[in-house]
């Protein structure tokens, strides 16, 4: 009898917990997110020419020599950032492919520099942000490479 009662209590409590924690909570959060912060809630998508070109947070497959390239390895596989050193090493290649002055490229990198610990730490850049800036600055050079 007591065993039956504790089993039925366990089952009923499970159903209640499931409804509250496994349904109501995530759905309420989704509602709040979609209403209050739709951009973040939908993956921080970047728009170009009014069209989504993917998430700012996810690395994109840049293989053309005119773009800064992301890392191939990394823990997530979609690391959107590269270190400043990595970016600097790509400057001559992009200069050769596009003719954009190295000084401009370097200045761009500095403009887009972030640091791992806010105001100190390793400097790095978001690859998509920098490439998008270059595309916007040099539409003629890049038009053949973009969607």
């Amino acid at each position: 009898m007591t065993r039956l009662k504790s089993v039925s209590g366990a089952v009923r409590m499970t159903v209640i917990s499931l409804i509250i924690c496994g349904m109501i909570f995530p759905l309420v959060m989704t509602g709040i997110g979609q209403v209050a912060m739709p951009w973040q809630s939908n993956g921080s998508q970047v728009y170009f020419d009014g069209k989504s070109i993917g998430s700012e947070l996810i690395s994109q497959n840049f293989s053309e020599p005119v773009f800064f390239h992301p890392r191939n390895d990394s823990a997530s596989g979609v690391d959107p950032d590269i270190t400043m050193a990595d970016a600097m090493s790509q400057v001559p290649r992009i200069h050769n492919a596009t003719g954009i002055p190295e000084a401009f490229l370097n200045a761009t990198l500095i403009k887009y520099t972030q640091r791992t610990l806010f105001f100190f730490g390793t400097p790095y850049i978001n690859v998509l942000d920098v490439n998008l800036y270059l595309v916007e600055e040099f539409p003629a050079v890049y038009s053949q490479y973009i969607q």
Binding site: F48, I53, G54, S55, F62, Y145, Q147
Partner: peptide, 14 residues
Amino acid sequence: VPTLQRGAYEILYN
């Protein structure tokens, strides 16, 4: 979604 570089796509998980 098609990404910035021509011909490249990414799966936008959410």
